[in-house]
Amino acid sequence: MQIDIIAVGKVKESYLRDAIAEYSKRLGRYCKLGIIEVADEKTPENASEGVERQIKAKEGERIAKHLRDGAYVIALAIDGKMLSSEGLANEISQLGLRGVSHIQLVIGGSIGLDDAILSRADYKLSFSKMTFPHQLMRVILLEQIYRAFKINAHEPYHK
């Protein structure tokens, strides 16, 4: 299975890059992983709703260039469906059983995803009602994908 993480912005902190590299290496046993970074837009302090919409639209256009026909697109969104780790593992397993061979997970920038990307998504996934830094979210997402593959392979992993 091909899994792509499409994320807005670069990861600047070395400890997060190290964690991303570690989970990417671990996932190599289970899937082909791609991490695609698209440029983020600077968001001015106290930006108006209109300016935020423009920023999300620009970032959305950059994301859209990487979305592939036939790929199952999962957008990370606060208002998406929350799953347990076992629930995510089951979703990935069911997609595989339905013949889906390419999953693309999209992480927006600091102000979220453009409505066009949310509309294009086949599934909206929420990790929490809390807001996480989008750079940290990449690590959390990779860890949960790794955990899902371990669950599906009936292999032990810490709880």
Rank of each mutant, 00 (worst) to 15 (best):
V106S: 12
L97K: 13
L76T: 14
I20W: 04
I145H: 00
S128A: 05
D114F: 06
N46C: 08
I151K: 02
E91K: 12
Y30R: 13
S85D: 12
A47N: 13
D79P: 00
I140E: 06
L27A: 15
A39S: 14
H102L: 01
Q144F: 00
I6F: 03
D79M: 03
L95V: 05
A71R: 01
A7V: 13
A77C: 10
K56L: 15
M1Q: 08
G96N: 08
S24M: 05
Y15G: 12
K65I: 10
Y30P: 08
S14G: 06
D114G: 09
V8S: 11
K12I: 09
L141E: 04
F132P: 05
A57I: 07
R68P: 06
V73P: 09
K150E: 09
S126I: 09
E22F: 12
E91P: 00
Q144A: 07
I107W: 01
A47I: 15
G50W: 07
S128K: 03
Y157Q: 07
K12W: 00
S24R: 12
K58W: 05
L88I: 10
E41P: 04
A121V: 09
L136A: 03
Q2Y: 13
F127Y: 13
A64G: 05
I78D: 01
S14D: 14
Q54T: 11
S14P: 10
E143Q: 07
N152P: 00
Q2G: 02
I63K: 01
K159M: 02
I103Y: 02
R26C: 11
E86R: 15
Q54L: 11
L97G: 02
E59I: 02
K32G: 07
I92F: 03
S24I: 06
L76P: 04
K150R: 15
R17F: 03
G112P: 07
R26A: 05
I140K: 02
F132G: 12
Q2D: 15
P156D: 06
D114V: 11
L125K: 07
E37N: 08
V100H: 02
L118I: 09
Y123Q: 13
D115L: 08
A39R: 10
S110F: 01
C31Q: 08
K150I: 06
S128H: 04
L83S: 05
L95T: 07
G112I: 01
L16Y: 14
V100K: 08
D122C: 11
I74Y: 02
H158C: 11
G34W: 02
R138Y: 02
S14W: 04
Y23N: 14
K65S: 12
I151F: 02
A121P: 06
R17P: 08
Y30V: 13
D122Q: 11
A71Q: 07
S84M: 05
D18L: 13
I36H: 13
A148K: 05
F149G: 04
I6P: 01
R68M: 13
Y123F: 15
V139P: 00
H134Y: 03
E61W: 00
